[in-house]
C-alpha cells in the first residue's frame, strides 16, 4: 500500500487510482450509493447521489457548508433514523452481501454494528478509558475479561494511543486532551472491527499536531478498513484520501481520484471550490 500521501499530485498515483477505479466496478466496491435521496421533513437534503465507495480506500467528501456532506455520511449508519420525520429513497448497497443500508427492511442497529463513526467533536463517554473502548464489545456480548482486555489494547494500539493511555486505562476519559479523546473515540469505533469507518470532520476541533496524528492514523487504517471522511480542509482531503467527492446543494457534482480532483477537476464548480473561489 502506498503510504506516501503528502504529494499525491506528483506521484504516479493518478494512473493507479484510475486503474483501481476500473477494478472496483467489478468487485472492489465496499458500498455503492445509487439514486440516493434524503429528506428532513419536506426539505430534500440529498438529491440523486450516485457514488462508489471503494474497499480499503479513503474517500473524502468536500463541499461548502450546508451542502449535505454530514447528511450523506449519516445515511451510512442510519443515524437519521433517530430523528423523526426523515426519509430515504434509493439505496446504499453494502458489499459483499448486497444489503441495502438504507432499506426499510434493514435494522438500523444491525447497520450501526457493522459501520463505525467518529464525530466532529470528540465525544467519549464519561467512563474510564477502558470502558469507553470496551463498550461496543460489551454490547456484542463480550464479557470475558482477558478477551476484552486484549481487544481493547488492540484497538488502542490501532488508534495510536496505547502508549499514552496504557497506564491510565482506569482513569476517566474526560481527563484526556482533545486529541487523545478523538483517538480514543477512533479506538472505540475500531474495537468492534467495523467494515466502514465514517469520519465527520474529525479534526476540526483539534490543533495542528493532534490533527497530523489523526491524519497519519487514517492513512494507516485504510489498509484494514474502508474510510469515508468529511472535511473542510482541502489539504487534508489531498493528504489522506484516495478519492474525493465534491458535493454542492445536496448533489454530487464530481467524484474522482483525489489527485485528479485537485489538479485537473472536470467541473468548473469543483475547481472554483478547491481554489477558494467559491461563493
Amino acid at each position: 500500500m502506498n503510504t506516501n500521501v503528502v504529494h499525491k499530485a506528483e506521484s504516479p498515483r493518478l494512473a493507479i487510482a484510475l486503474e483501481e477505479r476500473r477494478a472496483l466496478r467489478a468487485n472492489q466496491a465496499k458500498a455503492i450509493a445509487e439514486k440516493l435521496d434524503f429528506w428532513y421533513g419536506t426539505n430534500q437534503a440529498l438529491k440523486n447521489i450516485n457514488l462508489v465507495i471503494p474497499e480499503n480506500q479513503v474517500t473524502a467528501l468536500i463541499g461548502p457548508s450546508g451542502c449535505g456532506k454530514s447528511t450523506f455520511l449519516r445515511c451510512f449508519n442510519r443515524m437519521h433514523d433517530l430523528q423523526a420525520d426523515t426519509r430515504y429513497s434509493g439505496s446504499i448497497v453494502l458489499h459483499p452481501e448486497s444489503v441495502n443500508l438504507v432499506g426499510k427492511e434493514v435494522d438500523p442497529i444491525e447497520v450501526r454494528m457493522r459501520i463505525g463513526m467518529v464525530f466532529q467533536k470528540p465525544n467519549p463517554f464519561p467512563k474510564t478509558v477502558f470502558e469507553n473502548v470496551a463498550y461496543g464489545l460489551r454490547l456484542r456480548g463480550f464479557s470475558n475479561r482477558t478477551d476484552l482486555a486484549e481487544r481493547v489494547e488492540k484497538a488502542l494500539r490501532g488508534a495510536a494511543i496505547w502508549d499514552e493511555v496504557k497506564d491510565r486505562l482506569s482513569d476517566s476519559a474526560l481527563a484526556l486532551s482533545g486529541g487523545q479523546m478523538q483517538r480514543l473515540c477512533i479506538a472505540r469505533a475500531l474495537a468492534t472491527e467495523p467494515e466502514i469507518l465514517l469520519f465527520d470532520e474529525p479534526t476540526s476541533a483539534l490543533d495542528p499536531i493532534a490533527t497530523a496524528k489523526i491524519e497519519e492514523l487514517i492513512t494507516e487504517l485504510r489498509q484494514r478498513v474502508t474510510i469515508l471522511i468529511v472535511t473542510h480542509n482541502m489539504q487534508q482531503a489531498a493528504r489522506v484520501s484516495d478519492f474525493t467527492a465534491f458535493m454542492y446543494l445536496g448533489e454530487l457534482v464530481e467524484v474522482d481520484a483525489t489527485s485528479k480532483i485537485f489538479t485537473n477537476p472536470s467541473k468548473k464548480a469543483t475547481e472554483d471550490y478547491i481554489t477558494g473561489r467559491y461563493g
Binding site: N77, L82, M113, M117, F119, F125, Y135, G136, R188, A189
Partner: peptide, 13 residues
C-alpha cells in the same frame, strides 16, 4: 448531550 447518545447509538446500542 446529544453527542453522547449518538456515540452510543453509533456503536449499535
Amino acid at each position: 448531550p446529544k453527542a453522547i447518545r449518538e456515540a452510543a447509538y453509533g456503536l449499535g446500542a
